[in-house]
Design a protein around this nucleic acid. Structure first.
Lengths: 145, 145
DNA sequence: TTCCGTGCAAACAATTTGCAATAGA
DNA sequence: TCTATTGCAAATTGTTTGCACGGAA
């Protein structure tokens, strides 16, 4: 039932007092259709498949709204533009600084670190917003040679 | 002996076959003088105190060189421009997404996570390049109210 | 009808680049 | 001398904004 996330998002927009427009629905649907990790530009291209006249600025403004409503979020995967995704299953990213490969890891991997930092500093980490960088297995092996 | 880091950096530039220029020395000295977490713009201002005619583009080009030589590195602390620092004691940053406070934590905090990710995925993390975001103790307490 | 949302073009911030002049080795 | 480095201004990239028009409620 893929339409469910879209309907929930639309409902949240309405509930917030913002207007439900064709453009906003189109952005949410494109986000829903197109997995994780899209840049605003890529998302716009996905939107344009069905709605070629929606402006890039509108895509940015809609993403801003969706983030305020906690319907969508952006992540920084290494350098370059932000990546966007609908709220949903939380996972994290390791980005290889050599080959740019992205490895996804479950949120629970951070639990021990989370507890430790909370105990030590009172800081509640949300590691979702930024990726961790480093060297992937393949590139690390290459470097050893 | 604060000049030591500068001398080492200059020597590394020479050893790499690049030329040791007044501008490059000025950038290294400004970096050495001015603690961590400087943006390129702030670094340029520090340079201009003694060398008002050095161009911002030269600062950027020098930083690029220093990073290639592993003399200096940049870090992403939340949104906004990159922050630069000389190589040296490695530590990490927690950035509060509400108040932008920065909490520094020692590298060793990451050891268990590092080991786990290495075992699970073969990925060697270098958590230095990106900060972790979240909510600091004070803001978390405010949010509870 | 009343504002909110949108298109458009221009502004913006951070960074990079092409090219001619200059200065290290 | 010879070529790497620099200044300058312009280009780039990703994103935001002002304003007049058009469409949800």
């Amino acid at each position: 039932m893929p339409a469910q996330r879209v309907d929930q998002a639309i409902e949240a927009i309405r509930a917030s007092g913002s207007r439900v427009t064709v453009d906003r629905r189109a952005v949410v649907e494109a986000l829903d259709r197109s997995g994780d990790h899209l840049t605003a530009e890529q998302l716009a291209e996905a939107v344009w498949v069905r709605h070629p006249d929606i402006n890039l600025a509108t895509v940015y403004r809609t993403l801003e709204l969706l983030e305020r409503l906690e319907i969508a979020f952006h992540v920084h995967l290494g350098h370059g533009p932000s990546r966007w995704h609908l709220a949903g299953d939380v996972h994290h990213h390791l980005v290889c600084e050599i080959c740019n490969r992205v490895v996804e890891i479950p949120d629970s991997t951070f639990d021990p670190l989370r507890k430790r930092l909370l105990d030590d500093t009172g800081f509640v980490i949300d590691p979702h917003h930024f990726s961790l960088s480093g060297t992937c297995a393949a590139c690390a092996a290459d470097a050893d040679r």
